[in-house]
Design a protein around this nucleic acid. Structure first.
Lengths: 124, 124
DNA sequence: TCGATACTTCCGATATAGTCGAAATATGGA
DNA sequence: TCCATATTTCGACTATATCGGAAGTATCGA
């Protein structure tokens, strides 16, 4: 990911309403959530929600597919991953000495692969 | 870090000019860079640059200290770390199964602590 | 005290983003 | 075909962001 793209992806997330939507979808997993359920959960008017879903979608952070009359939106993890990689890039490649504070995060991410018992939810 | 704070920190970075500044400072390391040098490097008018430095500063992502007539700005790594932790939070705690794509990044961050030879600069 | 240097603040113009009700569109079922 | 449901698009208003020149402020050296 390069600068221009990263900035626009960040600006999609730089909004309390959209960040809430995105987190909800990340938490929900690959199965996604219907637009209506998101609206109910976040108590947002339909038109406002729709506008925000469009922004996130256009940024590549989520995607929606029709399911009957509903549309089910899901987070695109690869995109978030690319964004985080961009943000970590300079720190880890250019200045290895200054990214020690990020170790805690790395450890946290690393924990994910260590507990197979939790993985049964993945099927959803 | 909670939602409101994360959104406003993200919006500080969600701007091509400010993202360039921040990356420059991250790359530069804890020693920081003078405002004038940043302006020269990025070919930005002084007043525009100053406004952007203020935004980043107010978001806690950088800090400046006076050094004679110049002001030297440096990245605040802890803040970036907190932001990344927030973004990783749901994925790793709520849905451990979906953060596999982030492993590459974690590995990259983990590499930083493995070469003690580089760490002498950290004291600065 | 005076001038040069290094930034910041002020200002006004322009542009872009955000909000939400109402109307439009797409889908499914009777 | 006709209605109900689920979501989007439209429209119009408000608010906030951005930009850069000019003027202001702080610091240093002579």
């Amino acid at each position: 990911m390069e600068m221009r793209e990263a900035a626009s992806t960040l600006s999609a997330l730089a909004h309390e309403g959209r960040l809430s939507i995105f987190r909800l979808l990340v938490r929900a997993g690959p199965g996604g959530v219907r637009a209506g359920e998101i609206a109910a959960e976040l108590a947002a008017p339909a038109s406002t929600l729709s506008a925000n879903l469009t922004v996130l979608s256009h940024a590549g952070l989520i995607e929606g597919r029709r399911e009957g009359r509903a549309i089910r939106y899901a987070a695109r993890y690869g995109r978030m991953s690319a964004l985080l990689a961009f943000l970590l890039d300079d720190c880890c490649n250019g200045r290895p000495d200054v990214c020690a504070p990020l170790m805690g995060i790395a450890t946290r991410a690393a924990c994910c692969a260590d507990d197979p018992a939790e993985h049964d939810i993945a099927a959803l």
